[in-house]
């Protein structure tokens, strides 16, 4: 059964995923303009975009464990998950700059240089920039084995994203704990694999 599933998945094109993945952004913007995000739509939009980014990035990190433990091969869609995650981070950042901070540069600079939660979020974003830029087939070929090494930066960026979320909350909510567990869990699995590989050698 897994084989038929994998055969079907292999036949599916990658591009529709970008469109489907972008729909929540359109939906959120539509809600925001029409009052569907409550009386404080800016914070709501900002947070929803950040959470979507985390969801797509965590999804991209689920691809390998899914293949290893369930035999389901989604490798073909991994790049789309990752790029969508990065796209949502860009929208999240843009919402912060344009709608939340309304380009109040003095306060923006102060936030980036003095507020740990902003610094952590910015660090996660910056770590992902080279990954987005080298996500094309050409770059994968050009970098060879170094490509995989470079893209391990995502193991740092995703937990940082979850920590960035945590650092803004005033109390421990179920939603926050869920994302922390998922982000650290999915990277933690890799750490266990890496250690096992070292021991085996």
């Amino acid at each position: 059964m897994i084989d038929t599933l994998n055969t079907t998945l292999r036949k599916l094109p990658e591009w529709p995923l970008y469109i489907i993945g972008f729909l929540p952004a359109v939906w959120l913007l539509w809600l925001g303009v029409n009052g569907g995000l409550g009386v404080e739509p800016i914070k709501e939009l900002e947070q929803q975009l950040g959470i979507l980014a985390l969801q797509f990035l965590i999804a991209s990190l689920c691809v390998t464990p899914l293949r290893r433990y369930a035999g389901i091969n989604l490798l073909k869609f991994r790049r789309a998950f990752g790029l969508l995650g990065f796209g949502y981070i860009c929208l999240h950042l843009l919402t912060w700059l344009a709608l939340d901070m309304v380009f109040l540069w003095s306060q923006i600079v102060e936030d980036i240089t003095e507020r740990p939660y902003i610094m952590v979020g910015m660090a996660a974003f910056l770590l992902l920039v080279p990954l987005a830029l080298t996500s094309t087939k050409g770059w994968i070929r050009r970098l060879g084995p170094r490509w995989q090494k470079l893209h391990r930066l995502v193991y740092l960026a995703v937990p940082l994203g979850a920590v960035h979320f945590m650092m803004q909350e005033r109390v421990w909510t179920a939603q926050l704990i869920t994302y922390l567990v998922l982000a650290f869990g999915i990277v933690g699995i890799r750490m266990i694999w890496i250690r096992r590989r070292r021991v085996a050698r």
Partner: peptide, 11 residues
């Protein structure tokens, strides 16, 4: 953790 210099007026 955050600035108190400005605020968002709801609405």
């Amino acid at each position: 953790r955050w600035s108190q210099a400005t605020e968002r007026r709801i609405g």
